[in-house]
Nucleic acid binder design. Sequence first.
DNA 1: AATGCATGCGCAG
DNA 2: TGCGCCTGCATTA
Length: 270
Amino acid sequence: MPEGHTIHRLADDHRARFVGGPVRVTSPQGKFADSAALLDGTPLTTADAHGKHLFLGFEDTGWVHIHLGLFGKLGFGSATPAPPPPTDTVRLRLVNDDHYADLRGPTTCALITDGEKQAIHDRLGPDPLRPDAAPDKAWQRISRSRTTIAALLMDQKVVAGVGNVYRAEVLFRHGIDPYRAGKDLTRREWDAIWADLAVLMREGVRNNRIDTVRPEHMPEAMGRPPRVDDHGGEVYVYRRANLPCHICGGEIRTADLAARNLFWCPPCQS
DNA sequence: AATGCATGCGCAG
DNA sequence: TGCGCCTGCATTA
C-alpha cells in the first residue's frame, strides 16, 4: 500500500529487473491494451518516481504514468520457466527473460509524453526522497496558510509523497498538534519535520515498510508485549486509536480530517 | 453472501 | 463536503 516510499521502491525494483532490455507489455484486463500493443517489445530505459507517481520510460515511445491510488498494487515474480497466467484484473504486465511485474487496481495507468510528464512534476511539491527537492517551496506555502498542518502535509502540491501514515507519525515525533495552522509553525519546526521525513522515508524505501518508533520507545524496551497489527511497521499513533501512547500512556485519539482518519496523542502534541 | 474498510485523489456543488 | 473510482481482504451474518 502506497505512500511515496513504496513508489520510489517500485522505481528501484523496475530499474533492477527491466532496464536495458526489451520488455513484453500486455494488458490482460484490457483497459491499457492499445498502449500495451504500442509498447510491446520496446526497451525500458529508466524508471522515475515523484511523490506517489511512478514513471516507466520506454525508449523513443514515452512514459507509462502509474498512480496506485488507495488500492493499486504492483507485484513482481519470476518468469522462469514461465510467468504464471495473469488473472483478469491485471491492468499491465511487463515480462522479460527473468521477471514479470503485474499492476492491479491503479487510479492511473496511461502512456504520456515528456511534456505531460513535466506537467505532473510541475504541479507536485518537493519530494523528500528526490535529490532535487526544494523544501523551501513547501515552507513558502505552509508559512502563509491558515489550513491545518495535518491537511497541508497530505496536499501533494505542498509536499509530495507523504500519506496518512507519515503524516500522523511525523507530527507525533515532533510534538505538533495536527490542528495547528501552517502559518503557526516555526521555521525550525518545519526544517526538523522535513529532515525527519527524508530519513524516515529513505528507511521506508530500504525496508519496504514504515517504521517510526525510536529504539528506546519500542515495546520491548518499554517492557510491553510487541505490537500486533497488520500494516507492517512499528508506529506511534497510526491506527492506534484508544490504545495507550508509547510515551505518555494516554489514549491515542482519532478523528476525521478531509475524509481520512487522523491519529494523534493530545498530551504529547501541542 | 454481504458488508466494511484501506497507506489516494479528482470532481461537482 | 461528499461521491465515485480502482481491488482485495477481514469481518459479519
